[in-house]
Design a protein around this nucleic acid. Sequence first.
RNA 1: GCGCAGAUGGCGGAGUGGUCAAUCGCAUCAGACUGUAAAUCUGACGCCUUCGGGCUUCGCAGGUUCGAAUCCUGCUCUGCGCACCA
Length: 403
Amino acid sequence: MMENKNGQIETLLSRNIEDVIDRAHLQKRLIGGEKLRVKFGIDPTGANIHIGRAVALWKLREFQELGHKIVLIIGDFTAQIGDPSDKLKKRPFLSRADVKENLKNYLPQIGKILDIKKAEVRYNSEWLAKLDLREISELADIFSFQQILERRNFSERWEKHEEISYREGMYPLMQGYDSVAVKADVEIGGADQLFNLLAGRKVQERYGQKPQDIMTTAMVVGLDGRKMSTSWGNVINIEDEPDNQFGKAMTLRDELIPEYFEKTTDASMEDIRKFEKKLKSSGNPKELKELLAFAIVKRYHGAGAAQAARENFEKLFSRKEMPDNLPELKLKTDGILKTGGFSALDIVLAAGIMKSRSEARRLIEQGGFEIAEKVVKNAAEMVRVRGGEAVKIGKKRFFRIRI
RNA sequence: GCGCAGAUGGCGGAGUGGUCAAUCGCAUCAGACUGUAAAUCUGACGCCUUCGGGCUUCGCAGGUUCGAAUCCUGCUCUGCGCACCA
C-alpha cells in the first residue's frame, strides 16, 4: 500500500513533467501526507481545450486522487491583460464579453477530467480588481526591467524592435499575486509558463508566504510536428467528436507516436517502451497509430465511442466503404422546381464548408468532388439526386444527401 | 516635440508610371502515389463568371496623369535616432 502510494508520487513528479522546483521539498511534503493546495490558472482566452493543454489537467487529477485540494483560478481578470508567454506578438485586450463567452464553455470541459465539485474554483478579478496603484507599484518593484527582458519571447521582440508594452510585463505579477491570494503550496503550468510560475514564488515571498513549489508539464507538439495551434489546424480538442478525434489522430506524424502515447493517453510506460521497440522493427506503424487514436478517443468519450470511431474509420478509409452515420447535407427542393436539379456546385456549396464559390468551383474542377462514387469535374453539370447519396468533398469530408 | 525610415495578398518578401490580380518562398487546398504518415510529383491559390471576360485590391483620404502599388499633398500607425528627464 505504502509502496503503491510512493509509486504514484513518483509518477506524479516525473511523467510528462519538465521541471519541478523545489523537487526535494515537494516530494517530502507529498510523502509526508500533507494536504496541499494545488493551484492551476486558466485564462479563458479561446473556446476549446486541446489535448496539449489537457496534460496539466490530468496532472491535477493525479493530485486530486491523492487527496489534495485543487484550486482552479479562472483568469477572468488576467485574460483581459493577455498572457505574453506563448506569443511573439503583442496581445490585444479581450473584451469583457469575450471572456464571459469563453468562460461558459470552460468548466464543462475541465469537468471531463477533474472532479470540479471537489475543487475550489476562484475568479482572479476577486482580488486583482481591487488593487490600487500603490499596491501595484509595490508589486512592480519585485522585478527589474532586466529580469522581465530575460524572457525569450520578450528579448526576441526586443531584438526585432517590436513593441513590448508595460501591460505585458505586468502579467507575471498578477499571476504571482494569485498565488498569494489563494495561498498556493504548489502551482502547475505548461513549460512555457515557467517564468510566470517562478514569479509566483517571488511574489509570495514578498508577501511573507512560503514560496510555492512549481511543476511544469511537457508541451505537446501539433499533429504535424509544428507548434500546436488552432489556426494551424493541427490540434485535437477534447470536445471534438469521436470520429473527428480518431481521424485527426491518424494524421499524426509517425515519429510522434510514442510521444503522444506518453503525453496524451494513460498507456503505461512499460507498454510505451514495447510500442517503441515494435515501431523500430516492424514496417507499418499504422496499427500502433490506431491504438493511439483509440486510446485518445477512449479518454474523452469512453471505450464504446472509441470502438465505434475505429470501426467507422476502418470502413471509410481502409475498406473505402461509406459508413452509415455521415453528417447530413440538406438540399432545398425548391431548387429542383426552378432549375430541374442541382449542379455539382450547388451541392458543394450546400455543405457550407467553402469560403467562396470560386473555391468550390476550383475544388470540383480539380477532381475533389465525388457523388455516389462518381467523380464530377464540371461544376455546372446537373447531377441527378434522389437523396441518400454519399458525397465526398476533398480528401476527408463526407456527407449524405437528404432532400 | 524634431529628424529619418517604413506600411503590399494568411505570413515573409519583390515590384518604384503602362506588359500588375501583382515575381518568389512558406502556409493552405485539390489530384497522383500511400497507411487520411512522411517524402515526391502535378495543379490551384482576390471575388464573380454563360469561361469570352467582368469587378474590387497594394495603410487611409484626396490630387497629378490617357494610365498609379508605383508621382504629389494631407492623415493614421509602426520602428529608429535626437531632445525632454523638475
